[in-house]
Each structure stands twice: as C-alpha cells, then as structure tokens.
Amino acid sequence: MAVQAGGVAESDVLSQHAQEYASAARRHRAFGITKGLAAYATLSIFALIAIVPFLYLLSPSFRKSYELFSYPPKWIPSSLYTGNFGTILHQTSYPRWALNTLIFATSVTVITLIIDTLAGYAFARLRFPGRGVLFGLVLGTLMIPTAVLIAPLYIMISRLPGWTHSGINTYPGMILPMVCSPLGVFMMRQFISTLPEALVEAARLDGGSEWLIFRKIVLPLMKPAIVVLGIFTFMAQWVNFLWPLIITTTNDMKTLTVGVSSLQGQFVTNWGVISAAAVMTMAPVIVIFLMFQRWFVQASMAGALKQ
C-alpha cells in the first residue's frame, strides 16, 4: 500500500515535471514563433522599401505632369496616358543613348573578360619572376579612386601629342580606359586557384603547350567565373556615370545614365516625361535580372566567397 502510495506520489511529481516541461516548451515555441514573425516582418519591410520606390515611378509615367499636383493625391491614374513614352522616343535621342550604352558596356565587358582571364591564369598557375610584385601592384591600384584618374585620362584621350584625332565622343575613347579593373584579375586568379592543379600538370606532362592547356582545359572549367565577372563588369559600366559624363559632349554619344540626367534640364518640371524615361530604362534590366537572378546574386557574392 505504502509502496503504491509512494508510486502515486512519484508519478505525480513526474507528471508535474512533465507539465512544467511542456509549458516551458510551449513558451519557448511561442517565443520562437514571435521571434520568427518579427524576423519575417523586418525582412518584409526592407524588401518593400527596396521595391516600392520603383513602383512609385510607374504611376507618374502614365499621367500628364499637371495631374501629379492634384490634391488629394491619386496614385492610380484614372486613364492610362502614354504620351510621355512617345515624347521620350520621338523628341529625345533615347534610342541612340540605349544603343551607345549597349555598345559601351558590352565592349568593356568582352575585352575585360578576355584580358582578365588570361592574366588571372598567369597569376594563378604560371611561374615567372616578378609574379608577387606584379600581382601586388594590380591589387594596390584597387585603392586608386576614379576621380584621380579622370583628369589625366581626359587629357590623354583628348589631346595626346601626335594624335590627329581627339578621342572625345568616340567609342574607343570611351571604352578602352575602362577595361583594366584590378578586381577582375583578382577574381579570376582566385577562381583558377581553386581548380585542381593535377589537371593542368597532367596536360603539361602530355606535352600540351600552355596555350592549349589554357584553352582546352582551364577555359571550359571557368564558365561560372566568366559569367559572374561578365555580369559584374556589365553592371558596373551600365551604371557608370562620371566617365561617360566627361568623355561625351555631343548629344548623340551620351549613354543612358548621362542622357536621362540631361532630360532633367530639358524637361525641367515635366516629371511625367522624366519618370517615363526612368521606367523605360529600368524595365529591361529588371526582366533580364529576373531571368538570370541566380547569376546576379552570385556576382555580388563573389567578392565575399573568394576571400
């Protein structure tokens, strides 16, 4: 009897413990859920802050400018007015600016990819005197601000002694000074260093020339790095403003960034037209981004991952 009573008491204590444990777990879970909700709420707020301002441009681009000043504000236009887009296409050089941007950014990207891959391979896999010094030199120039280079570059492109033509307002003048970003070489070297050295050694023993090894063995393995550096370089030139601003003086040679900013002077308070230009500029990029999002995200993470 006593034993049984003891047993009952013991199981009572146990169940009390179990209850306490269960309620602690519930509290803990509830706390966890609250924390999770707070986390997702925070993330959502910042995601909205990132996106909503773009939608904010959409509305005025479909309205006549004076409608913007209506009070109370109307966010959804009562009728879609597309005249702003017509103004951009027919009264400005917008199509030409888009073409210039495409030529400029694509050329810089292609040249950068070729020369950075070659140099990255040499720094990662070939042995030669001065390797450390040269690589240090390339890395050191990362610290040189563009603003320091623009004056000498402008003078060089516009009036190098002995040049019969000025490079101002020409594609080569715009493109060539932008092709030697140190970051690309660094990224390529880091990537090639992660490739198994045995592959290259084996090909070398089989008597392959360095060029053959590079083309047939290293290059095919580098596809992901090339895509990432390509997107990285293209985006950097797509948003480039300072260099196109100073190296182009005629309306027909402007890039989109410079052209669209010049609209602000031309259409002083015609916000409808200006936001139409902005929408036209962003829309294709967002489409491309959504198509290749994985690569874009990798491109911006590359710097961190390759440390």
Binding site: A47, A50, M235, V239, M282, V285, F289, F296, V297
Partner: peptide, 8 residues
Amino acid sequence: LYVPLLAP
C-alpha cells in the same frame, strides 16, 4: 533587396 542595385 537586390533590385535597387540595378538602378544607375
């Protein structure tokens, strides 16, 4: 969060 990076 990435979208603003696309804008010049």
